[in-house]
């Protein structure tokens, strides 16, 4: 269950390149990449764990692939260590306080986030093993993993993003993040469907179309749920109109203007209207496009989240993101291939 040599090498190369880039330019590029990959690494496993607990059959064709993202949690952990090591934590205003808070202080911040990422990676591995071997304790580990998932995502929301805005608080923020990560996980399944449709159809003949329809129905359902969460947060803040609270939106409106409306459009309106049709849900190319769209929406949202607090040098951010994406792709692909070899469905090339 431990990452293979190929994966470890990818991690080292990736981390070294990114650390090197970070030396060149200051800014939030690394935090930006981490914020995206913490969602797409944990989300897919959360989808599988939830399906395991609920006894959903539709997860079968996807399970193994969803599990491949688990080692990316370790990579995010490494990136977070780089982030700390390079002193990027000083992007947070509260690190400059004369009297550090009991919650917001550098040692505790570093420790709790490192520990939670570590725990969630370990639990992911334990759960994955239990699930693939259909062990009796599968559901218990799925539950434990989901606990760690919820806590990690909540910490990411509150520590990585919300603490930038202290004393602004939104109690929904944590839930918003773990729902969004789940949504990213479903998008991952959609993207995978697009890439490997023929293969999935052949290996799971007879059951795959139904499983895909169910998976995409979930994807559709989560587009609604995402919209619901977004609206729930927006309307409370809009209605209350308390200066220090509504500044979360007004400051961003000042900088990004009506570009902000792209977020609900990309993450809710477009996926909703596309996926409402049964025909579209059954079309692998369409769902792949929607999957990429959702990922793009999440990426854009991260720009808006961080952009007003720190410099996001476009070139370096893009390069770092591409490097991390390459690692992600490598991790998923190499493990997916390994799994195929192990199950005798393909021969090593």
């Amino acid at each position: 269950m431990f990452p293979s040599m190929k994966v470890i090498i990818a991690f080292i190369v990736g981390a070294v390149v990114i650390a090197g880039l970070e030396f060149v330019v200051e800014g939030g590029s690394l935090l930006y990449s981490m914020l995206f990959f913490v969602a797409v690494s944990q989300g897919p496993i959360a989808v599988a764990a939830a399906a395991d607990i609920a006894g959903g059959q539709w997860i079968r064709p996807y399970k193994q692939t969803l599990f491949t993202t688990r080692h990316m949690i370790l990579f995010v952990l490494i990136l977070f260590a780089v982030f700390l090591g390079l002193g990027r934590v000083h992007l947070y205003e509260w690190t400059h306080w004369e009297h550090p808070g009991q919650w917001l202080n550098v040692p505790f911040f570093s420790l709790r986030n490192l520990v939670m990422l570590g725990i969630s990676w370990v639990l992911a591995n334990v759960y994955v093993k239990a699930s693939l071997t259909e062990s009796k304790t599968k559901n218990m580990w799925a539950l434990f993993w989901l606990f760690s998932y919820v806590i990690t995502q909540t910490l990411v929301a509150f520590d990585w993003v919300m603490s930038l805005e202290y004393p602004w608080i939104s109690t929904l923020f944590g839930a918003y993040f773990f729902v969004e990560a789940f949504y990213c996980g479903l998008a991952f399944a959609a993207i995978y469907t697009g890439f490997r449709y023929q293969h999935l159809l052949e290996t799971h003949s007879g059951t795959f179309k139904k499983a895909m329809m169910d998976m995409m129905t979930m994807f559709f359902g989560f587009s609604i749920f995402w919209g619901y969460q977004f609206f729930s947060q927006y309307i409370v803040i809009w209605y209350g109109n308390i200066p220090e609270e509504v500044s979360f939106f007004t400051r961003r409106l000042d900088v990004f203007g009506s570009l902000l409306y792209l977020i609900p459009l990309i993450l809710f309106v477009i996926p909703f209207w596309i996926l409402i049709s049964r025909k579209m849900k059954a079309n692998p190319k369409v769902v792949m496009a929607v999957g990429f769209l959702v990922w793009g929406g999440v990426l854009l949202e991260r720009v808006f989240m961080l952009g007003i607090h720190m410099a996001l040098p476009p070139v370096i951010s893009a390069v770092e993101f591409i490097v991390a994406s390459a690692v992600f792709f490598w991790v998923v692909k190499s493990q997916d291939d390994d799994a195929l070899v192990a199950s005798g469905e393909a021969t090593p090339t």
Binding site: S170, T171, L172, F173, A175, Y228, Q229, S232, Q233, I235, V236, I237, Y239, G240, I242
Partner: peptide, 19 residues
């Protein structure tokens, strides 16, 4: 929940209320 959350009363006015 918004009967409460829309009001500017602490303990009511909080975004998590709906879910």
């Amino acid at each position: 929940s918004w009967d409460f959350a829309m009001g500017v009363v602490y303990g009511w006015h909080t975004t998590i209320f709906a879910p």
